[in-house]
Amino acid sequence: MDYIQSHQLKSVGVRIVYKGLVIFQYLMDGKSEDIWLKRKERTVIESGHSSYYTFLHQDQYSTWIDNDNYTLGGGGFPITENQQVVGAICISGLKHDEDHQLIVEILRKLLKEDHL
């Protein structure tokens, strides 16, 4: 959350799910339970890809375009173990490509700091 605040980004919701359990969820001021976090999570888990990938490959996910359970837009990122998707990191509240980029930047920063 420090990253979000230090870059003066508007309020976002963050949800991390691991093996079916919500292990972290934070909704900044002005955010309530966000259906978009759940939609991004479902998209990642069922596609096996980032939700941004599904945006870039909409022809493969055309049945999800008008389905309220999924979203074809950025902001969901898979957590993998042994080449299996076991969870998702989801951010919602910015433009979909900015949600995706925020996850990438935070993960890059954590990896650089050797936290993961």
Score class of each variant (00 low, 15 high):
2 D>N: 14
6 S>A: 12
7 H>P: 07
8 Q>M: 09
8 Q>N: 15
8 Q>G: 11
9 L>I: 00
10 K>N: 13
12 V>M: 04
13 G>A: 08
13 G>P: 04
14 V>Q: 03
14 V>A: 13
14 V>P: 05
15 R>N: 01
16 I>A: 01
17 V>C: 07
20 G>K: 03
22 V>Q: 12
23 I>N: 09
24 F>D: 06
24 F>K: 09
25 Q>Y: 05
25 Q>T: 15
26 Y>K: 14
27 L>C: 06
28 M>Q: 12
30 G>P: 04
31 K>P: 03
32 S>C: 08
34 D>A: 07
34 D>I: 03
35 I>W: 12
35 I>P: 14
36 W>A: 15
37 L>K: 01
37 L>F: 00
38 K>G: 13
41 E>H: 09
41 E>P: 08
42 R>L: 14
46 E>W: 07
47 S>A: 09
47 S>H: 04
48 G>M: 09
49 H>N: 11
50 S>N: 08
51 S>Y: 01
52 Y>R: 09
53 Y>W: 05
53 Y>S: 03
54 T>N: 05
54 T>H: 03
55 F>C: 06
55 F>W: 12
56 L>K: 11
59 D>E: 13
60 Q>N: 11
61 Y>G: 02
65 I>M: 08
65 I>D: 06
67 N>H: 13
68 D>I: 05
70 Y>W: 13
75 G>Y: 00
75 G>P: 07
75 G>E: 04
76 G>T: 02
76 G>L: 06
78 P>G: 06
78 P>F: 02
79 I>C: 05
81 E>L: 11
86 V>C: 11
87 G>Y: 09
88 A>E: 03
88 A>P: 06
89 I>G: 06
89 I>P: 05
91 I>W: 01
91 I>K: 01
92 S>R: 00
94 L>V: 01
97 D>N: 15
100 H>L: 05
101 Q>A: 06
103 I>K: 00
104 V>C: 13
104 V>T: 13
106 I>R: 03
109 K>N: 10
110 L>A: 12
110 L>M: 14
113 E>F: 04
114 D>T: 13
114 D>F: 10
115 H>F: 13
116 L>Y: 14
